[in-house]
């Protein structure tokens, strides 16, 4: 068993979460769950940023995370508004149903 944690482990962890997020995006059809998967991706990025930041002793990374969170919050507000708007009109938040625009 490993005695110490290297930055590699954080990268593994973050990238795994990132890929799980992408997987979620790929296999789900519910817009909200999809959006949550994207949030998962953002979280993995945050984690990686903090890891790098801590390792280098540079505050910039953590500041960046702070901004990402702010942006994510704003994005969620808008995104959920969009989803609600769509739901009002179509009674569905299945992205498979949103296919009027094609070809």
């Amino acid at each position: 068993m490993l005695k110490e944690v290297f930055i590699d482990h954080y990268i593994y962890l973050a990238l795994t979460l990132f890929c799980i997020g992408i997987l979620g995006v790929l296999i789900r059809r519910n817009a909200i769950v999809l959006f949550m998967s994207i949030e998962l991706m953002l979280n993995s990025v945050n984690l990686l940023l903090v890891a790098f930041s801590s390792r280098m002793g540079d505050a910039a990374g953590q500041i960046f995370v702070f901004f990402i969170m702010t942006v994510a919050a704003a994005e969620v507000a808008v995104g959920l508004a969009i989803i609600v708007m769509l739901y009002r009109n179509t009674r569905s938040i299945d992205i498979g149903d949103a296919n009027k625009l094609k070809w």
């Binding site: 790929l26 992205i95 296919n99 094609k102 070809w103």
Partner: peptide
Amino acid sequence: RYIQNGQTGFYF
């Protein structure tokens, strides 16, 4: 044209 099939999932 058919690869532009309107399915967001497919696009992803």
